[in-house]
Amino acid sequence: MPCNLVAVRTAKAVVDPRLVLDNPQMLEGVKTLVAQIVGTKPEHVTAYNDKRGTAWGQGWNQWRQNHTITETIPAEKLVGGAYVDWVCDQCAVRLERDGTLTFRDGWDLPASKHFTPEQADAILTQLNAAFNQLLGVLFQQKVQQIVASQFALQNAQYAANGALVLTVEV
């Protein structure tokens, strides 16, 4: 922030997980993010939640008996749920509305586990960083969209530290 400003104000906003959970494009895009981190292909990741599909665990195993792993639930039908699970053959990732992020290795049977506890911790750490980065960018985009819709946006550019710098005419 430069010196000799007429007025300055700082604020802290809540970066809301709904930026992903209520965004069909992001629900699809996260499949690629999850696939890269857990080491599978995006087409092997299915997204579902309490509105479509069933809870993970026993419910998930039962659900899979009647569905192929490549079946796609339209992302629009997942919007508005309490959480979203991104599930592949090996594991699942759940994002809840309060921001809780959970990584689940395998299913009900011990034989279904694919990762050591250390590997699972490392994956969760990577997932946490990736989701925070994604939510941060979505938050920046949301602020930019609001500002551009209400005021005359003169300039927008990213700083080296990842901050988005907007100049608007009010």
């Binding site: 300055v8 104000r9 802290k12 970066v15 925070n132 602020v143 930019q144 700083a159 901050a163 100049t167």
Partner: peptide
């Protein structure tokens, strides 16, 4: 406006 990725906003 300087918008950080963790929710900080400086006006």
């Amino acid at each position: 406006l300087v918008i950080g990725t963790a929710g900080s906003v400086a006006f």
